[in-house]
Design a protein around this nucleic acid. Structure first.
Length: 472
DNA sequence: ATGTAC
C-alpha cells in the first residue's frame, strides 16, 4: 500500500485516514528512526480500522513489526461506543515490564563485592526458556492467589516491603483479574515459572547512574549520580503467552457474530463489553498480576544476594509494564470517555499530579523505565503535562537484526570478552543466546529516547549504564 | 516474547 506521511513537526508524522481507516495514524519518530519503521507503518494503518478507535492509531519512536499491532503501538477504543479489545494490541508477553531498584551505595563502595554479587545472581536467578523459578508454589491454589494478588500477595508472604507496593504500577496488583478465564494449560505453564527471567531481551542488570538530567526529580525517585541500581526486565512467561494464544483463537471465532472484519487476522478482537472481551481482559489482568509477582520475587532473590555479598539494601524506584491494555478515562473531543487503552511496547507515562501516582512523587510525573540493550544504556524518564497518545511513551530499543543474523555477526565468546573489556561483568546462560542479543542487533536507545522527548511524550531524568548483566 | 511449529 502507498503511504503518505505528513511531517507535522520533526518528531511527529501523520498518516491521513483513507480506505477503512477510522482515525489518522500518528507516528512519533525522527527521520532516521522512520527509515527502519517503514514496513510496520502498514500495521499502524490496520489498527486505525478497529471498531471504536478514538484519536489516532499511534506509534512510538521504537516502532517495529509485531503480531497484528506494531510493537510500539498505542490504540484506545471507546468502551461505550462499541470499542474493541484485541489481544494483538497487548502482545504475547502480557505485562512484560521493567522494575528498577536503587542500592544504598555507589559504584566505588560496591566495586570490590561486585564479582561475588554477580556470581550470587548467576546461581540465584532462574532464566532461559522453559520451566524454573525461585518460588516453588504449594500447588494450584497458590497460583490462584498470585493471579489475584500479584506482588501484593508476594509481599504478604514476606517477599518484599511496603514500598514495593506503593512504588509499583497499580499498587502491585490490578483488581479485575479473573482466574476463571485462564486455561488449564496456561496455569500448568505458569506454575513452575514464578520468579524467572525468561530469555531473549529479558535481563537483570546491575547498573550505575551515569548521568542525571534533573537532580530534583531523580532524587525524588531515589536516584543520585554514581549510585548502583538493579534493573529487571521480564514478563509473564509461558502463562501470558498461553493466555494470548487461547484468547486470540476465541476472538477469531467470535468476531463474525459481532459483524467485525479486520484487515489482518492477527487483529482478532471483540467489543470490550462482550463475553469474549471481558474474558480476555480478566485473563490479561491475571497475567498482569503474575508479571508483577514475577518481578517481585526476582527482586526478593536479588536483595538476598546483595545483602549477603555486599551488605547493601535495595529499594524500589518503580515498576511499570509496557505490554498491557487498561480501562482508563480520558478526555476525547472535550468529553470524558471510558477507553480501553492498548499499549504494546509502549509505556504508560502519567503526567505530574495524576491521582494514580504514588504520593511522594506525584508532583514529578510517573517514572518511566526504559531498558537498553545489553552493554549500552538504560533510561529513567518521567511523564509530562499534556503528554500525547493517552499518556504513553517509548519502551526501549527495537531490534534491527534478526536473532539468526545477530548470531552470525558475532561469536558469543568474543562478545563476552568485549563486554568484560568494557568493564561489564557478564553471566549468560548460553553463549548463543548472548550473541543473539549483541548491541548491534538493536536500534540506538538514546535516539529513541531523544525522539520521545522531542515529541513531547516524556522527559529524561537519568541515564544508567551496566556494570553486570544476567541474561537468559 | 514463547515447552523458538500443531
Amino acid at each position: 500500500m502507498e503511504l503518505t506521511l505528513v511531517e507535522e513537526n520533526p518528531y511527529r508524522f501523520r498518516i491521513e485516514p483513507r480506505g477503512d481507516m477510522r482515525v489518522p495514524g500518528i507516528v512519533f519518530a525522527s527521520h532516521d528512526l522512520l527509515e527502519d519503521a517503514e514496513k510496520s507503518l502498514e500495521q499502524v494503518v490496520n489498527v486505525a480500522t478497529l471498531p471504536g478507535i478514538v484519536g489516532a492509531s499511534y506509534a512510538m519512536p521504537d516502532i517495529h513489526w509485531g503480531y497484528g499491532f506494531p510493537i510500539g503501538g498505542v490504540a484506545a477504543t471507546d468502551v461505550d461506543d462499541g470499542g474493541v479489545v484485541s489481544p494483538g494490541g497487548v502482545g504475547f508477553d502480557i505485562s512484560c515490564g521493567v522494575r528498577l531498584l536503587a542500592a544504598d551505595g555507589d559504584r566505588r563502595s560496591l566495586w570490590p563485592a561486585l564479582p561475588d554479587v554477580m556470581d550470587g545472581l548467576d546461581r540465584a536467578i532462574p532464566r532461559g526458556a522453559g520451566p524454573g523459578g525461585v518460588w516453588h508454589l504449594s500447588g494450584p491454589g497458590e497460583l490462584e492467589r498470585i493471579l489475584d494478588g500479584g506482588s501484593r500477595y508476594a509481599v504478604e508472604r514476606g517477599h518484599g516491603e511496603e514500598r514495593d507496593l506503593t512504588r509499583c504500577e497499580d499498587g502491585g496488583a490490578v483488581a479485575d483479574a479473573d482466574g476463571a478465564q485462564v486455561s488449564g494449560r496456561a496455569r500448568e505453564r505458569g506454575l513452575g515459572q514464578v520468579g524467572s527471567l525468561g530469555s531473549a531481551n529479558h535481563f537483570l542488570e546491575v547498573q550505575q547512574v551515569a548521568e542525571v538530567y534533573d537532580e530534583r526529580v531523580a532524587a525524588a525517585f531515589g536516584l543520585v549520580r554514581d549510585q548502583v541500581c538493579v534493573m529487571i526486565h521480564c514478563g509473564s512467561r509461558g502463562l501470558g503467552h498461553q493466555i494470548c494464544t487461547d484468547h486470540v483463537r476465541a476472538m477469531d471465532r467470535a468476531m463474525n457474530r459481532y459483524g467485525i472484519t479486520v484487515p489482518d487476522r492477527q487483529l482478532a478482537c471483540t467489543p470490550v463489553d462482550s463475553p469474549e472481551g471481558r474474558a480476555y481482559l480478566g485473563a490479561m489482568a491475571a497475567a498482569a498480576n503474575y508479571g508483577r509477582a514475577n518481578r517481585q520475587l526476582l527482586s526478593d532473590a536479588t536483595r538476598r544476594i546483595f545483602h549477603r555479598a555486599a551488605r547493601t539494601r535495595l529499594s524500589l524506584v518503580y515498576d511499570v509494564s509496557h505490554n498491557l491494555a487498561k480501562l482508563e478515562t480520558h478526555t476525547v473531543d472535550g468529553a470524558r470517555r471510558r477507553l480501553c487503552v492498548h499499549r504494546k511496547g509502549a509505556t504508560r507515562a502519567f503526567p505530574p499530579w495524576h491521582r494514580e501516582l504514588p504520593e511522594d512523587i506525584r508532583e514529578f510525573g510517573q517514572p518511566v523505565l526504559i531498558p537498553g540493550t545489553m552493554g549500552t544504556a538504560s533510561y529513567v524518564l518521567a511523564g509530562v503535562p499534556g503528554g500525547d497518545a493517552f499518556h504513553s511513551t517509548c519502551h526501549g530499543a527495537g531490534r534491527v537484526m534478526s536473532r539468526h543474523q545477530a548470531a552470525r555477526t558475532v561469536a558469543g565468546k568474543e562478545l563476552r570478552a568485549r563486554l568484560e573489556r568494557g568493564g561489564i561483568a557478564v553471566r549468560p546462560r548460553s553463549l548463543r543466546g548472548l550473541a543473539e542479543e549483541t548491541p548491534e542487533a538493536y536500534k540506538d536507545v538514546s535516539a529513541v529516547v531523544e525522539a520521545s522527548e522531542g515529541a513531547g511524550l516524556c522527559r529524561t531524568v537519568a541515564r544508567l549504564v551496566p556494570l553486570g548483566v544476567v541474561k537468559g
